[in-house]
């Protein structure tokens, strides 16, 4: 199906936009990775959200989510790899799956723009962002999963399951990592290789491998939607939360400071409203 609104990210801004879209009778899908990736989930205590003093971040986010669910918001688990505007609609690549929508609201949270040494040069030549898309090319080969998202251990298990020799690296061992996947504690990574990946440098230690799966919570904005105008690393928006691409709106931390829940919810509300109007204008 083609949704009226696809929301990228399941935090306060995204859920606020989704609820607003549903209020205006629009079909809405929220595409989100694991809830534990969300900045609000990690906030131990929130004291500045009006009416809810001394609330735990995880609790607030869970309430936001159940509100969206009772409003009939659809949920799609996964990482949006890229967005392709085709004029009349948008295609969103979600892992090895795809979502179609008439408008898009970006609520990715803050996104790391810096790439690892070697990442860009070796993309598609050993560097991958998607285990389910590219895993089959690495059957019987050695791969390193650089886990930078809560769902990464599950993707590492998938790669192991299809026959890859998986090593998992992260600054800290995730609790839900399979016991039989070797873990390498490392914070600073660089990818090595000329025409293809031959290994990684993990905190100065060289580890040979055939592939590196970089599993972050969100793609860099410039890769997610090429042509999107950024300002100081944040998505440039106007008062309507419109971005430089017609039909694409943005809200929350990805549009800039302050990185706070009230601001995210307010911007999400506007973005959901304007996205609904955009759909109305373009579907008659």
């Amino acid at each position: 199906m083609i949704y009226d609104i696809a929301v990228v990210g399941g935090g306060p801004a995204g859920l606020s936009a989704a609820v607003q879209g549903r209020t205006r009778g629009k079909s809405v899908v929220v595409v989100s990775t694991d809830i534990r990736d969300n900045a609000l989930y990690k906030a131990h205590q929130v004291d500045n959200y009006l009416g809810f003093p001394r609330t735990q971040g995880a609790q607030l986010l869970t309430q936001f989510r159940s509100h969206a669910e009772t409003m009939g918001v659809q949920w799609k688990a996964g990482r949006v790899l890229n967005i392709l505007p085709t004029g009349a609609e948008f295609f969103l690549g979600v892992g090895s799956d795809m979502v179609q929508a008439r408008s898009v609201v970006l609520t990715t949270g803050t996104v790391q723009a810096a790439k690892l040494p070697g990442e860009q040069e070796l993309l598609g030549r050993g560097v991958s962002y998607c285990a389910t898309c590219d895993g089959m090319f690495y059957r019987g080969k050695s791969v390193i999963v650089a886990g930078r998202s809560a769902g990464a251990p599950e993707e590492a298990a998938y790669l192991k399951g299809i026959g890859c020799n998986v090593t998992y690296t992260a600054p800290r061992r995730p609790e839900d990592l399979d016991a039989d996947i070797p873990f390498l504690k490392a914070a600073r990574l660089a990818i090595l290789g000329d025409s293809t990946v031959r290994g990684i440098l993990a905190d100065g230690q060289e580890i040979p491998c055939d592939g590196v799966f970089l599993l972050r919570a969100s793609m860099a904005l410039a890769d997610l939607l090429p042509g999107l105008t950024l300002e100081d690393g944040y998505i440039a928006v106007d008062r309507n939360m419109s971005t430089s691409i017609p039909g694409v709106f943005a809200a929350g931390d990805c549009t800039g400071l302050p990185l706070q829940v009230s601001k995210a919810v307010g911007e999400g509300q506007v973005a959901g409203h304007r996205a609904s109007e955009y759909v109305d204008r373009h579907s008659s």
């Binding site: 890229n82 085709t86 969103l92 090895s96 898309c133």
Partner: peptide, 12 residues
């Protein structure tokens, strides 16, 4: 056939 991003690219 099973790759979503590939299906996005197909009409292009």
């Amino acid at each position: 056939t099973w790759c979503g991003p590939c299906r996005m690219l197909a009409p292009v």
